[in-house]
Nucleic acid binder design. Structure first.
Lengths: 341, 341
DNA sequence: ACTATCGCTGTAAGCGATTACATGTAATCG
DNA sequence: CGATTACATGTAATCGCTTACAGCGATAGT
């Protein structure tokens, strides 16, 4: 630390070297008015020459921006996260912002603690990916008007700043597609049901069945948690049913992969013996064998849009930001086919 | 809980409430000596009651730790990065550290700027993933004894704090394996050759050829940049050679995927018409069709180990940290087979 | 010509913590 | 039992920056 402070160039050094006061340097650095053009140039030259870089900590402590936004998420365990992250990263890059990654590893307690830390100056804004139990801190965040955007989480209130996708419609489309192929016994692997996106997909599934006069059978719905192992377990359960489904709709691709594994395990061939459709369209979906038919969510775009919204909100806290819902779409690959006669 | 909506709770508030001075509160918070046990308890109770959370900015400005480490990398575009990230994340979680993500998007200029920002208090330490042109700032980093670890980058100096893998041996093993299957015309798709890991793999390839009396043919080496498109292009080039190779060794899995695509494009079936082996063993490798035979790098472990080293270095800058090289291993799947007679 | 105005720059007061140092009290010793 | 010491706590000084406010020539208004 001693060593560092010795080498560190501060605005005072710049000021001395440029023959102006530190206040002026600060004004130049922040593009404020009331600085003579030639002074500005002179200061900038010294800044370059000395290789001065502002200390962000000090800057934000003193009331400025931290140029950092936080991303709060459960973990990095799925391709799902990675793609959204790419979108966020791309957008941040353009805005010259940096990213702080907070992984909660599903510990509720940590979420609150993080939110506290973040709002204590660590970041100018916050992106919340798939937050659960958000009630605890969401109100406090809103109360202090801390800029934040929810990704993929339709809360109850519609006053939320959020970006999501048409989960219900996507669930409907997936089921519809399978029905269109001739399937009537369609298994469903649910996601974490305290997440709105998960229940929406389930609802879409039920609606599609209803619209096509197929009775809903609770045995065909197997629980899952969006992780691959849970997909495997659910797939196994579904496949050991007396009256086995001819198709399975998994609430996300990762679980669909688990179902495929279970099918292979039972010696069933896909799509001949069992059709499988997923949700998300993560990169891996196109690469597995057979390539997975799925409902595409524009994940990267969701990341981008959310970031744009957040940046706008940071710039102007009063900005009128409307919730965004991006469309999902059916991506037909090779994991589905009409059931055997 | 921490519903102090507007006005954040500071150590002064805690001090007043607990009837002690702010200095004492600070001592309690930092687990310093010279605090009466009962005072400590009393302060902690107030901390909990008020939901006090320290402002990290202020803390690190004043000379404490920021509890943040930075990760500098090119981008998030490959599964490769994601896995290392998982390892880092896991280890950081345990140490109660947070992660700042810096993506340079391959702009050399940005790397230096980032390094400057980071060392200006933003983080306690730095993880450098596959740094190129690191010469510019590496010296300055070392000079100011800023804790940092290089991942997957054997620099020239062996005084580096780094963790890598046996790239040369891995390249050798991959080639050896193909030769063992009977291949003699083996294409090689190179990675970014200003990276040590890329040249090491190439060297391993050449050595294996030499050891088996197979003359090196420069036409069989095609350039690449570790990205999938470059793999596709390289694959195409290799496959359009008059005397086409019967096997291709790609410097990483992502490019191997590109080669597979090129093969499919030319109507070649894998592994019947062309054997392909990759490097890394990213998750997707096991999922593509046919499953990709590859050289496994323990990516997640590399992330873990690097993080452990960094944390140790932060705790004790004088700590004697030895460079670590983790072993690669051959993972046989189904993308290779003896050449057709 | 004398003030009112404006543009530019310097100065001081924090932001919320850490830490060196000063101070007061209780425990220890010859 | 007075002097020494150890421990507990309070206070001042900082860290590097932003920003409100003061100052001060120069231009403008009447």
């Amino acid at each position: 630390m001693d060593d560092q402070s010795k080498n560190a160039v501060t605005i005072f050094d710049v000021a001395r070297e440029a023959g102006v006061s530190y206040g002026t340097v600060s004004r130049v650095l922040n593009n404020r008015d009331h600085v003579k053009p030639e002074t500005r140039v002179a200061v900038m030259q010294v800044v370059d020459r000395l290789g001065f870089v502002a200390n962000q900590q000090a800057r934000s402590l003193a009331g400025g921006r931290s140029q950092v936004i936080g991303l709060l998420l459960h973990g990095l365990s799925t391709g799902y996260t990675d793609e959204i992250l790419r979108g966020i990263d791309a957008e941040l890059e353009a805005a010259n912002y940096d990213l702080m990654l907070y992984t909660t590893h599903r510990r509720k307690l940590k979420e609150s603690a993080y939110v506290a830390t973040i709002t204590r100056g660590m970041a100018d804004g916050l992106l919340l990916l798939l937050p659960r139990n958000s009630e605890q801190y969401l109100d406090s965040l809103r109360a202090r008007e801390f800029p934040c955007i929810l990704i993929d989480h339709q809360g109850r209130g519609d006053t939320e700043h959020s970006v999501g996708a048409t989960n219900r419609q996507g669930g409907y489309d997936a089921t519809r597609y399978l029905i269109g192929l001739g399937h009537r016994r369609i298994g469903f692997v649910a996601g974490t049901l305290d997440l709105a996106c998960a229940t929406d997909r389930l609802e879409g599934y039920r609606q599609a069945l209803a619209d096509n006069d197929i009775p809903f059978d609770a045995h065909l719905v197997s629980p899952g948690d969006f992780g691959q192992p849970s997909g495997f377990v659910a797939g196994r359960a579904l496949l050991s049913l007396r009256e086995r489904p001819t198709a399975v709709f998994a609430s996300n691709d990762v679980m669909a992969l688990g179902v495929m594994e279970a099918a292979r395990d039972s010696g069933l061939s896909i799509p001949d013996d069992l059709s499988i459709i997923g949700f998300d369209d993560i990169q891996q979906a196109a690469l597995v064998y057979p390539p997975l038919t799925t409902i595409r969510q524009p994940l990267e775009e969701m990341g981008r849009v959310a970031t744009q919204m957040l940046l706008k909100l940071i710039a102007d806290p009063q900005a009128d930001i409307q919730p965004v819902t991006l469309p999902t779409s059916l991506v037909v690959r090779q994991s589905c086919r009409p059931p055997r006669a």
